[in-house]
Design a protein around this nucleic acid. Structure first.
Ligand SMILES: [Mn+2]
Ligand SMILES: [Mn+2]
Ligand SMILES: [Zn+2]
Ligand SMILES: [Zn+2]
Lengths: 139, 139
DNA sequence: ATCCTTATTGCAACTTTTTACAATAGCACA
DNA sequence: TGTGCTATTGTAAAAAGTTGCAATAAGGAT
């Protein structure tokens, strides 16, 4: 499965090497379009590159997230999912039915500035997860 | 190790039974005072109640968190820690050095109300985790 | 004090995630 | 095109977390 997207130059610009393993992982995330768990990434990317192993998947996802190619999101109980980094957004998850809603960054902008000035931290741009009960599950 | 705190009545008020396993787990969290991982809880609570097993620890921590006796916090890469629920607060973690800062709930209050009215979700009271770079790690 | 219901537990097997280290292979440069 | 540096990978083993199910025991009721 070849496709036009080539991440090699951007990876090298960040000091990372392009390998067939990384290529397969990035393609899987690109074509899925959504959030995938490491196990899902492993199973799918393996079809493109069968020698792929689990440790490589876990390390690659972490490395690519650290360099901002991917966003990591917590989805409850220590579960984590990844997606290609695109527009900045956040998540709101119903802890009863699992339903999720995307949250724009705009309403968080003021808070971010307050926290940065009061703590001295420079906040990451993305992907905070809020939990709650959706309207259906409140009854 | 006996101690004066007895959670039994509060547990029963929530429809939960008090067992020596739960007692040991609650005591460990009470005496530690901070955030503990499930593995840490398991190792310590085992000293008080040696028959304790891992599945019981994981299930108990989830159950107690669901009933709001405990707060769960994500601390990066799918790692989760628990603490006794007390004052509402949030966390800001440096993803380079791991340094953490507590964040009061007050500055999030407005955001919470906005999100609740725009999404229809009723937000959980606690423990959002923000990530960023602390002032030391920004250079 | 005993019985009964059913929440809770332990067991055993399994899946997921992590670790250390030696082998491999990008890619910058000559 | 070939060489060398070292980032990246696979391997093997361990650790952490999950699951289904049968046995146990908490605590309300008699
Ligand atoms: Mn997302
Ligand atoms: Mn906390
Ligand atoms: Zn819901
Ligand atoms: Zn730091």
């Amino acid at each position: 499965m070849t496709c036009s997207i080539n991440y090699a130059p951007q990876l090298r610009a960040q000091g990372l090497r392009m390998t067939p393993q990384r290529n397969a992982i990035l393609h899987v995330l690109h074509h899925s379009g959504g959030h995938l768990s490491p196990t899902q990434v492993y199973k799918q990317a393996r079809k493109e590159y069968p020698r792929l192993t689990e440790p490589t998947v876990y390390r690659t996802l972490e490395d690519l997230a650290e360099k901002k190619f991917l966003l990591a999101a917590h989805v409850g109980n220590g579960k984590i999912v990844y997606e290609l980094a695109a527009k900045q957004h956040h998540h709101l998850i119903c802890h009863k039915c699992g339903g999720t809603v995307q949250v724009e960054h705009a309403p968080l902008e003021l808070l971010y500035r307050q926290l940065e000035s009061s703590t001295g931290y420079k906040l990451d741009s993305g992907h905070v997860t809020f939990f709650g009960l959706c309207s259906d599950c409140q009854s």
